[in-house]
């Protein structure tokens, strides 16, 4: 069947769509895709003195994955991100639950607004404040000393992975609350009444009905916290005192200070692969949860 009218209409719709999307798309291709491709090419080249030799090699990747120094940086980044993600999501869930279920509907946006405000204030200053709070002569130590609870400052408060986890968990808190909140909002309230009607207690209703239904939100929260955390630069720099580098710090060091762009690129590409792998894994989990609900 020939249908000139239909093809014309369709073509014009497809064409309008493509025309409309082309400015942002061309921008993303020029500023994101092309640079990432360049980096990918660099990562298989050989580093020369002040130059990059276009000689193909896998050495950069071998170094990235076998050198103890880089491997420990990668592992530390992963570990910190896992801790931060777990802490953030577990701490955020009750807050999201409270706002969704226990707050009067007319006051919900006010609570959400209160939760988001700290997120929009200078990230640098928030991180720095934790350094000030946790420092050797910082707010907590001096406060406790002034109250005569301790004589000597607590050394374990600062310059360690725990302080970094605390700082990052604070920085990404709203990222975790909002998706969980959205998932909880979508749950039909009568399902919970049905749960109780069928003989479950409030707690078992939560475990058997609410929690499973909110899993897509939890998974989104995990992704949204995990991804920026693993690439964080400021926190290891300020809170870790530069002595506990994560991936971003390693990339910076190699690309600029050591001027080994191929190796730096290989680490960056590897980091992207790790992030991509984790994302795909969680998106897959999410799809399974979504399917279970349809």
């Amino acid at each position: 069947m020939t249908n000139p009218n239909r093809t014309r209409l369709w073509r014009s719709e497809g064409a309008s769509g493509l025309t409309l999307i082309s400015p942002p798309l061309i921008y993303a291709v020029l500023m994101l895709a092309a640079p990432l491709a360049t980096m990918a090419v660099y990562s298989v080249f050989t580093d020369g003195y002040l130059t990059i030799e276009p000689i193909l090699t896998a050495q950069n990747y071998i170094d990235t994955w076998t050198d103890v120094l880089y491997r420990s940086v990668m592992l530390r980044s992963l570990l910190v991100s896992v801790f931060v993600t777990a802490a953030t999501v577990i701490l955020a869930y009750p807050v999201a639950y409270f706002v969704s279920f226990n707050v009067d509907p007319s006051k919900k946006s006010m609570w959400l607004f209160l939760i988001t405000i700290p997120f929009w204030t200078s990230y640098l200053i928030r991180v720095f404040m934790w350094k000030v709070i946790l420092g050797y002569n910082g707010v907590i130590n001096s406060g406790l000393k002034a109250l005569h609870i301790i004589d000597q400052p607590l050394g374990w408060l600062n310059y360690n992975v725990g302080a970094m986890v605390l700082t990052l968990a604070h920085a990404y808190a709203p990222f975790a609350i909002l998706p969980i909140y959205v998932a909880l909002e979508k749950i039909d309230r009568s399902l919970m009444e049905a749960g109780q009607d069928l003989g479950e207690t409030r707690w078992t209703t939560f475990l058997r009905v609410t929690l499973p239904l909110s899993m897509p939100g939890v998974i989104a929260a995990v992704l949204i916290v995990f991804i920026p955390t693993i690439g964080d630069y400021v926190t290891p720099n300020l809170i870790g005192g530069g002595k506990i580098p994560m991936i971003a710090n390693a990339i910076e060091k190699l690309m600029l200070k050591a001027d080994n762009k191929p190796l730096g690129s290989a680490i960056a590409i590897s980091a992207m692969l790790i992030v991509g792998l984790v994302s795909v894994l969680f998106l897959f989990l999410n799809r399974r949860f979504m399917r279970g609900q349809r």
Binding site: M1, T2, N5, R6, R8
Partner: peptide, 10 residues
């Protein structure tokens, strides 16, 4: 199709 919001195939 009368209003013009849907094209027709033939």
């Amino acid at each position: 199709t009368v209003a013009g919001f849907e094209g027709i195939s033939s």
